[in-house]
Every structure is written in C-alpha cells, then in structure tokens.
C-alpha cells in the first residue's frame, strides 16, 4: 500500500523495505556460499562469508534505528504499524540467519584437512539447498506481500526438520562405521544443526509475513518433524 497524504511517510516505508531486501540478499548469499564452501571445502570462500557478517549486523542496526524513528515521527497505525514491526522482526531473523551461515563457514575452516569421504557431505548439502529455497521463497513472499506463498514456506518447515533427523541418523552411522569419521561428522552435525535453525528463522519470517498481510498472529503449532533428540544409537544403526 502506498499513497499517504503525507508522502514522506511513503518514502520512509519504501526505504525500510529496500533495506530489508538488501539484508535478505546478503543473508541469502552468505547461506549459499557457506554451503558451497562446505561442499568444496573452500576455505577462502568460507573466510569471505565470515567477512560479510559485519555488514549484515550494521544493516540490522540501521533498520532498527530507521524503524524507531519512523514510529516516533509518523505514529503509524494498522497496516503501517504492522509494516514497521515486521521490518524489525525480519531484520532480526535475517541477522540470526547470517550468524548461523557464518557458523557453518567457521566449521569449514575448522575441518580443513580432515579425512572424510565425499558422500558424507551430500546430505548436509541437500538440506542446505532445501533451506535455501525456503529463504528465497519467504523473501519473495515478503516483497510481494503474498500470504499464500508465506504459508507454503511455513508448511514446508516440517520437511526440513524431518531431513535433519534423517541426516543425524546417517551421520551417526558413518561415525560407527569408521571412527576416523567422528571428528568430521561431529562438525557436520553442528553445521546441519545451524542449517536447520536457519530453516526455523525462515519460518519465523513466514509468520511475520502472515501477520503483516492479514493482521493476525499464527496460533497453530508449527509443523515439527525433528525427532533427533529421541534418536538412540540402536535406532540409528538399525541394531
């Protein structure tokens, strides 16, 4: 929506949206490249991802300041108020996504030179791709104010959790197969956990888009399929 009687207000809102778009683009990039770095064990690329994080933090700060100023100056109501509150929330989720991508990149640096078969990385890569798609979709949903699209993302979060549980079992199996895999697999497990949490933040954003568009807060339980906390070694190895 646009066309306020006070046109400077429209400009304020446009600026905020532009900044969110910029943050989204950066978070997406950090996410893709950290995964690529992990798959290719590309330390240089991982370092570049780590170096992107301060920019994301700075953007989040700017958005918060701009949002607070806009609230003070324009005293927004209804959809405008939701617009600004959403910008603050989404900026915070994107900042966390950046942190988590950075953590994955740090793992890449940590596991450099470790022995491991390529097949082990494939599962994490696959999960990353899925989360990547979710992030892209939810950012599109935000830009288009598209509740249906946001809800699709929200509903798919269960798949990511299920995938994480499967991956957890798979990695346990590799560790038992060959103890030389243990260090590497442990790092991968942490990386996978980070990716799974990026998925959670993506779901948060979907909830925010829903609130922004409809004015209602989602009350339903999130689709959850992560049972890794109950997985035992016996189950994991089918023993």
């Amino acid at each position: 929506m646009s066309d306020h009687i006070v046109r400077a207000f429209d400009a304020d809102l446009r600026t905020l949206r532009g900044m969110i778009a910029e943050m989204g683009g950066l978070a997406e990039k950090m996410m893709t490249e950290s995964t690529r770095a992990l798959a290719a064990r590309d330390i240089e690329l991982a370092r570049r991802v780590i170096a992107m994080d301060p920019k994301l933090d700075a953007l989040q700060h700017e958005i918060e300041e701009k949002a607070v100023l806009t609230i003070a100056r324009r005293q927004p109501m209804a959809v405008d108020l939701r617009d600004i509150v959403s910008a603050i929330r989404i900026a915070s989720d994107l900042e966390r996504i950046g942190d988590l991508a950075k953590n994955v990149a740090k793992r890449v640096v940590a596991i450099a030179g470790q022995f491991h078969p390529q097949k082990i990385v494939t599962g994490v890569e696959h999960m990353s791709d899925l989360v990547m798609g979710q992030l892209r979709d939810v950012l599109d949903a935000y830009a288009a104010r598209d509740d249906d699209r946001a809800m699709d993302v929200w509903n798919r979060d269960g798949q990511i959790d299920a995938l994480y549980t499967a991956l957890f079992r798979e990695l346990l199996t590799y560790m038992m197969e060959d103890p030389r895999n243990i260090t590497f697999c442990t790092h991968l497990l942490f990386a996978a956990k980070n990716v799974e949490r990026i998925g959670d933040h993506t779901t948060n954003i979907a909830e925010t888009v829903h609130y922004l568009v409809t004015g209602h807060t989602l009350t339903a339980e999130r689709p959850k399929n992560d049972t890794s906390s109950f997985t035992t070694l016996d189950e994991a190895t089918g023993a």
Binding site: M1, D3, H4, I5, V6, F9, P76, M77, A78, V79, D80
Partner: peptide
C-alpha cells in the same frame, strides 16, 4: 475505509 482513515490515506 477504516484502514485508509487511520493510516492517513484519505483523499
């Protein structure tokens, strides 16, 4: 109409 009024969009 409520939305337009309270958000300052009335022409």
């Amino acid at each position: 109409r409520t939305q337009d009024y309270i958000t300052g969009r009335f022409g």
